[in-house]
Design a protein around this nucleic acid. Structure first.
Lengths: 155, 155
DNA sequence: TTTATTTAGTTGCATATGCAACAATAAAAC
DNA sequence: GTTTTATTGTTGCATATGCAACTAAATAAA
């Protein structure tokens, strides 16, 4: 028995790209996770992206972080919980508005990001080996179209 | 404040397609879920795909189902738990090999799949509105390449 | 035939995610 | 100045997923 032919798409729509992008994403996440583990880092792609955003943007309120990364605020809350336990980020209450937590990278988080960055760079270029410039730009365009089509109807 | 420009990719690799496919997938799942809810069905894309596989393949051992759908067997176990609670599928022990559970679609599951199938068909075609034949085939090819590159290194 | 190994499935633990409902605080309306 | 509304963040509940460790059963090896 083999995995189902990937062309067997949902509900007989034979030109659906959904299962393709779903699986590519899943395996990419697994690959990143496994390589990080090998290198001695217990980090997911999600966490690495968050490190990067905080590195580039500086401290931000949770709400803004959720918006910037297009996540539900509850998801953001728990992601920050996880990363706080690992001492990658810290919540610092804003004295001017007691509702707000500013999320900072810790020194440890900054250090880890610097270490992990070149590894990610390599993994990503390995994952995209064999894709032409034009393939990459077509994929990006297509994904934006799909995302727009979805959001349009999500109002 | 706006969502980060999607071109802001992981670790400064500006031609990475990862964030694009991740977000497209997430919004597609949300769209499917929300539309299903509107129509009175509490079903995720994952569950619908499982209904379809069982509809087409007939009853299967959990192990085979996990392999066919490229899921970890523990993930499969819990997906079947969820669907069993909803009376969409049933586990029937194999008398010839007491280790094996055959997973069947229930009558209810079969009925629901028939109802949901045309809805999915519409959603998918709406989501891909604006993609040309050639875009779709490029995306498929690209996703297969990424998946292969990942699996290669996951041994 | 008894022991060792492999296979099928489950459970604990971890990550990630969204919706609904909630508490605390700030801002607006009155 | 008090009441109402909006904003920020958390928790409960639900889904989905993988790895490690486990049990039960079948198969292979001794």
């Amino acid at each position: 028995m083999k995995p189902l032919d990937i062309t067997q798409n949902i509900c007989g729509i034979d030109d659906s790209v959904m299962p393709y992008i779903g699986k590519a994403m899943k395996f990419a996440d697994m690959r990143i996770c496994s390589e990080m583990t090998e290198q001695g880092y217990k980090l997911s792609r999600t966490q690495i992206v968050m490190l990067k955003v905080l590195h580039q943007q500086g401290a931000l309120p949770q709400n803004d972080l959720a918006f910037l990364t297009e996540r539900d605020k509850t998801s953001l809350t728990r992601l920050i919980n996880t990363m706080e336990k690992k001492n990658l980020v810290a919540r610092i209450p804003n004295p001017d508005d007691k509702r707000i937590n500013m999320v900072h990278l810790t020194t440890n988080g900054e250090k880890l990001f610097a270490e992990v960055r070149p590894i990610m760079k390599r993994i990503i270029s390995e994952m995209q080996q064999g894709l032409s410039e034009s393939d990459i730009s077509t994929v990006k365009k297509a994904m934006e179209i799909i995302q727009d089509n979805c959001i349009k109807k999500l109002q």
